[in-house]
């Protein structure tokens, strides 16, 4: 709806958009879909049970439990320091949980290291979407599709190639790409690994508002098309809530509220509560 207005913002933003749109065209053609994810209807694709974790002696998560059903997008919002990113790190296996369990499609993956969880089907998009600066876009997709092949569900490397062709420097290092292109590439890499559950940590961090919204919409569309289950941590509350099926408000390392109609949280009352929560933490 806002795209027409944003498109008038000059050639740079327009170029970002063309990359983002091609991202969906290219990735959408992949052999994804619910059949490839291994999840069964009625069972949660991802379940977090009573997870506590922290850094050193500082406990950030205090007994978090939540579920993401098959094909569901769950937004996790909350003030800074509430433990949103920490939660994703624990699910991805990059930070050990001091208590609690993480289940992927019913299997306990709590004791698996990060790379084994990726093999099991967890796709983790690091905050702001990390790319490998010295690798080319093609390299990224090849690297990622190896994981999919390992899981025996076929790499999506082939249909992704037209996408990387849209980059100005397909054979140049990714470090030279613009912010939006880099983040689109990070999304494409994760999707090329064909995960069952996608963890997004502020995928649009640092982007201009228009580009950020477009990237977020594309991620949501791609996830819907492939029936991906998504756990989505986001600061851009106003942008993420309309895209989500459910939302969880995290405060002081605990789920403080939950809703199945996230749009209702866009009303004044809840936003004030969020602000208030941020203020008490100083």
């Amino acid at each position: 709806m806002n795209l027409e207005r944003d498109r008038g913002r000059g050639p740079r933003v327009a170029r970002e958009f063309s990359v983002l749109r091609r991202l969906r065209e290219a990735v959408g053609a992949g052999p994804g879909g619910p059949g490839a994810t291994g999840a069964q209807a009625g069972r949660p694709a991802l379940a977090v049970q009573g997870v506590s974790a922290g850094y050193g002696k500082r406990e950030v998560l205090r007994g978090v439990s939540l579920e993401v059903l098959q094909g569901e997008i769950v937004a996790v919002i909350g003030p800074n320091g509430a433990g949103k990113s920490t939660l994703l790190k624990v699910v991805a296996g990059l930070l050990p949980a001091s208590q609690g369990h993480v289940f992927l499609c019913g299997d306990d993956v709590t004791s698996l290291p990060a790379h084994r969880r990726a093999h099991a089907g967890i796709g983790y998009m690091i905050q702001g979407g990390a790319v490998f600066p010295s690798l080319t876009p093609d390299d990224h997709l090849r690297l990622a599709s190896l994981v999919a092949r390992r899981r025996g569900i076929g790499g999506t490397g082939q249909p992704l190639v037209p996408f990387s062709a849209t980059f100005p420097s397909r054979h140049g290092p990714a470090g030279l790409l613009s912010g939006g292109q880099r983040q689109a590439l990070a999304v494409a890499s994760i999707l090329a690994s064909n995960p069952a559950v996608l963890l997004c940590d502020e995928p649009s961090a640092g982007l201009a508002p228009g580009v950020a919204r477009e990237l977020m919409e594309q991620i949501a569309l791609l996830s819907r098309e492939r029936a991906l289950s998504v756990l989505w941590v986001e600061q851009r509350v106003g942008d993420v809530l309309p895209l989500a099926d459910r939302a969880v408000l995290l405060r002081d390392g605990r789920p403080a509220a939950e809703t199945s109609s996230p749009r209702e949280w866009l009303g004044d009352g809840v936003l004030a509560e969020l602000t208030f929560g941020g203020a008490t933490r100083g």
């Binding site: 991805a92 296996g93 990059l94 290291p113 990060a114 790379h115 990726a118 093999h119 796709g123 983790y124 998009m125 690091i126 990390a130 790319v131 490998f132 690297l143 990622a144 190896l146 994981v147 390992r150 990070a186 890499s189 994760i190 690994s193």
Partner: peptide, 9 residues
């Protein structure tokens, strides 16, 4: 990026 590499399996 070690973390991104681990996240990609």
């Amino acid at each position: 990026d070690e973390v991104a590499a681990a996240a990609l399996g």
